[in-house]
Simulated assay, not measured.
Amino acid sequence: MGKADADGPGLPDLPPEWGRVVIPDDIAALADEAEQIRRELRRAAAGSRRWRPPTGPVIVLIVAVLTTIAGLAAVTWLRAGRTGPSASTPEPTPAQLVGRPLPALDLVDAGQSPVPLRGLLPVVVLLVDGCTCLEQVAEAARTAPPGVTVVTVADTRPRAAPAGAPVRALADPAGGLRAFLHVPASPDGVTALLADRTGRITLMVPEVASISDHQAELARLAG
């Protein structure tokens, strides 16, 4: 027979003369008692055309079956609540991303060859999956200090960088970088991400108007 659930509901108060009522873990354990109830009811129906209330032992069995069903349903509901989905984790703000390590993601080039993101450090990453924004990309290429890689990241395939600009065009088909940043693509701007040579994020701007507004952070990338 079963045992009481540690967190489950207890039995309702029953007459003491009924004795100890145990709730089994499996309702199938009451098959014999249920069959006895059916036999009692069949005998009562066969003996008289008028229905007679079941006897005392049968009432006890009926109450035990109903109590077991209610108890198992309550326990199942409580356990489902305890194991249900937890509260969602708050999404990090741009300021909270600063200081975190750049994720070890593989982007792809025009030939679909993998390019490790952390192999491009120090780096200025411009996510252009929502807006090509060639002017902002060209400005970033002009403004970035020597030794700092400027990368554009599109969604499905790399987009051509401005002619003559030292920019590496890559793609992130799996969307791992956007998922890490928790920032949706915007048709009106470029998301900028800066990481130093140790892989630490130094700046994240969801929609950058002009990369030249962040000259101090750019200069520190070359340090």
Rank of each mutant, 00 (worst) to 15 (best):
L102Q: 05
P85I: 10
A195S: 13
G119Q: 10
A179H: 13
P184C: 08
I69N: 05
L102I: 08
S210L: 10
L126D: 01
P145I: 12
G176H: 10
V151H: 04
I211K: 01
L194W: 05
V123H: 01
A195G: 07
L193G: 00
L181F: 06
V148Y: 00
G81C: 11
A185P: 07
T132E: 13
A179V: 07
Q112T: 12
L193Y: 01
R82D: 08
T76F: 05
T76S: 11
R178G: 06
V137G: 01
P162K: 05
L134N: 03
T202V: 15
L181H: 02
M204H: 13
V128I: 12
R157I: 10
V183L: 15
A160T: 15
V148W: 01
P145L: 11
I211T: 09
L193S: 00
I211F: 03
D196T: 12
T132P: 05
P187I: 06
G147K: 12
L170Y: 03
L177P: 02
I201V: 15
L170P: 00
L121R: 04
A192G: 04
P166L: 07
T198M: 09
A74I: 05
E135D: 14
P114A: 11
A169F: 07
V124C: 08
A110N: 06
P101G: 08
P92G: 05
A110S: 14
R79Q: 14
R100V: 02
E207V: 15
